[in-house]
Nucleic acid binder design. Structure first.
Lengths: 218, 218
DNA sequence: ATATAAAGTTAGCCTATTCTAACAAAATAT
DNA sequence: ATATTTTGTTAGAATAGGCTAACTTTATAT
């Protein structure tokens, strides 16, 4: 049995591990907003349960079992987000908090039904991949907009670190998944980019914003 | 702040109070499958929070505030059951466990959306009334089938104490809400009733089953 | 290469929720 | 009317999950 609390730690580790394959106590502590000593003792507990590999002062790694468990929680979260947007009329900026709660529901049938009703979606409303029933996830190789060159035309595929405020910002700027963007200019100094897309002919986006936009080259 | 645990106690009290307007520790203990001393200390806590009125050795009563809080949890439970059946294709015998979890989700908007999508339903899939947004509930005055007379024609309006096994039993006997039933015979000895409805021309139902069937006289 | 900073750990404490064992009160039955 | 059963309470302990304070390791910066 994995408690809701344990699920949250596993999910956090999974998120942090995407790039490096491992995470450390401090990062997890910040992500979950739980103090380090608490995280430390939970890591011991999860190591005991063979869900993570953990040795003092070393980075934390999920075991295969832990990785699968975490992926299935992420699956439930992202299926829920998709369901909320597609079937219940929520905006992509309104679903995170709810999904955060729904993801802990214990009922394989509930999520099976969601998946069927949605037609087995591969991505959530923010473009993040939905792991399959076995916990496998394919991480598409998108580029961060801030790393693209002036003159390039790209298509918005996903939004990273999508907080509600950032999503509302994108809404306000008519930017959504699928939007085709042309990079008009790029400021050496601060990384600001001037973008052209849809009706917007020269919209300036900060470095911080561009970092979070994952695009595919046309 | 009312915790999930506290919500479960309030809901239990609400259920038990429907008839008598009050409940006692022992009943609540059995209903929730939690030992009496635990229930006892939770009652003190809820009394402290002004959600119940409680004095040693006296029955427990919900305060107005407690009653409203409980009704809103029941509302979330029953809306969820309706949503699962009407919008997600579940059977009425599959929804209780899931609703038991979903009812604790904190998101007024989530349940507002559900309610809208369902068209503001007044009853759940088992015929139980759904309290309104203010926690008001109207308890319709149905009759238990076992108390009806031979020869009477009635319509099934609701199912009480609807466990999954009982609902599966009803499924197996083609009995559902709205079914028109004629009482063909009634056994003095054990209360068994012979019923005629739909294709079933002389189906025998036990006293225990009839007790749970709430009907309206034609 | 050492001083400082950052990250990680240990120890000890707190709250919420549960339990068992033992005792007390109220209700029921002879 | 008293004995027995049922119901309710108290006391004390356990577990899960969180915290702060103090200390140790590792990393970073002069």
């Amino acid at each position: 049995m994995i408690s809701n609390t344990e699920e949250n730690y596993l999910k956090g580790l999974f998120m942090l591990s995407v790039t490096k394959g491992e995470a450390n106590v401090n990062e997890l502590s910040k992500l979950l907003d739980i103090k380090m000593p608490t995280v430390n003792s939970m890591m011991k507990k999860l190591a005991e349960k063979k869900l993570v590999i953990y040795q003092s002062y070393k980075p934390i790694k999920l075991t295969e079992e832990g990785k699968k468990a975490a992926a299935l929680i992420v699956r439930k979260h992202r299926l829920t987000e998709m369901f909320l947007v597609e079937k219940m009329g929520f905006g992509w900026d309104e679903v995170h908090e709810i999904a955060e709660q729904v993801e802990h529901i214990q009922s394989p049938l509930f999520f099976k039904k969601m998946d069927e009703i949605l037609g087995h979606p591969k991505i959530d409303p923010h473009g993040s991949p939905i792991p399959d029933k076995d916990g496998n996830i394919d991480n598409p190789n998108y580029h961060q907009l801030n790393e693209c060159e002036v003159g390039q035309s790209v298509i918005l595929k996903a939004v990273r670190l999508s907080s509600d405020t950032f999503l509302k910002f994108l809404n306000a700027h008519q930017m959504s998944l699928g939007t085709i963007i042309t990079i008009t200019a790029k400021e050496e100094f601060d990384g600001n980019m001037t973008l052209s897309y849809g009706d917007q002919k020269s919209q300036v986006f900060s470095y911080k914003a561009c970092e979070r936009l994952l695009v595919e080259k046309q």
